[in-house]
């Protein structure tokens, strides 16, 4: 509820004529005074709730917008202000313009106009506040008890969604190391289908949407797991832990569980260690990347 009364915005102006930019600032003036709604213009993504973006996305500001977006704490909302931020506007045809904000980050509210009027912008932000509250409720419901979360075996029909999720989830790591050539990002749909023939896929589903996935197969008494994927918004909520536990239950004959991780992914390494996995071997993948294999021995279960 309080989220509604204190939306802090961060404003970024992409490639535009600055018309909308000026109108956003006009909202802060005594005439419109958005502070009466509790809205503050912060310059800091880590303090912001709403990302107000004007102007289109081009090759130069793409990274900046992504960076700001990823630095904002959840729950967050993106409001695209003006026709340029919505579709690229008159700049859409330019050789260096990618288009609207929606091309690179999910947009929740589009405010149209050229330039958008301050009244329309305030309206858009208020609409965004409503969505912010919905997102918060969703986050809380996921935190509480996981009543919505179901873990099921996936079939080939889910391949497209899982592949999309795989690329989304690995994006931030790729950005972090400026290496867009690593395997999860390059995998094609045909390859995923091939995986489906050999491996068991599990999916974590919330509200009919796949938010996490893992695949595994057994080889002797060893269960090999790979491609643990969690949607960025749903990371850190214990979904990965439940996926791993489900794999364990699916292969009751397996005595050992194995999973691989890139040596740079310290967070994931910490996570596996906490779950009782131990480093078993190290493999060189490329010049810069090593792959670490973590293994866990499972105690014999009583089957009576």
């Amino acid at each position: 509820m309080t989220l509604k009364r204190s939306p802090w915005i961060i404003h970024y102006d992409g490639s535009s004529c600055n018309g909308c930019d000026i109108e956003v600032l006009a909202c802060l003036t005594p005439v419109f005074d958005v502070e009466r709604l509790g809205i503050i213009n912060t310059g800091n993504p880590k303090h912001a709730d709403i990302f107000v973006i004007t102007g289109s996305i081009n090759e130069q500001n793409k990274d900046v917008v992504l960076n700001i977006y990823h630095q904002m704490p959840e729950p967050k909302v993106v409001v695209a202000v003006g026709i340029c931020a919505s579709s690229g506007g008159i700049f859409a045809e330019c050789y260096n313009v990618a288009g609207g904000v929606g091309k690179i980050i999910p947009v929740d509210v589009y405010v149209l106009g050229c330039a958008a009027r301050p009244e329309a912008i305030i309206d858009g932000i208020i609409k965004g506040v409503g969505i912010l509250d919905e997102k918060r409720k969703k986050l809380i419901s996921i935190h509480k008890g996981f009543e919505e979360l179901v873990i099921q075996q996936a079939d080939a029909f889910d391949a497209v969604e899982i592949l999309w999720l795989q690329k989304l989830a690995n994006q931030s790591e790729a950005e972090l190391y400026h290496d867009f050539s690593f395997a999860p990002l390059l995998q094609t749909l045909d390859q995923v289908w091939e995986d489906f023939e050999k491996q068991v896929f599990l999916k974590a589903v919330i509200d009919k949407k796949i938010v996490g996935s893992i695949r595994a197969y057994q080889e002797g008494d060893l269960c090999r797991m790979s491609r643990l994927i969690i949607h960025p918004v749903y990371q850190g909520l214990g979904i990965a832990k439940r996926l791993l536990a489900s794999v364990e239950n699916m292969f009751p004959q397996a005595r050992r569980l194995e999973i691989a991780v890139s040596h740079r992914n310290k967070r994931l390494i910490y996570f596996y260690k906490k779950l009782g996995y131990q480093l078993s071997r190290r493999e060189k993948v490329t010049e810069k990347v090593d792959r670490l294999f973590f293994e866990k021995t499972v105690a014999e279960k009583d089957h009576d």
């Binding site: 309080t2 009364r5 005594p30 005074d33 009466r36 709604l37 509790g38 704490p73």
Partner: peptide, 28 residues
């Protein structure tokens, strides 16, 4: 401050709303 700047300004308990909101946000 808002009145000195010719604005209406936020509700009186706005600082409390701000803090309550911050408590609900992700801690990066």
């Amino acid at each position: 401050t808002s009145r000195l700047q010719g604005r209406v300004g936020p509700p009186l308990w706005q600082p409390v709303f701000d803090v309550m909101k911050l408590l609900e946000k992700e801690n990066l």
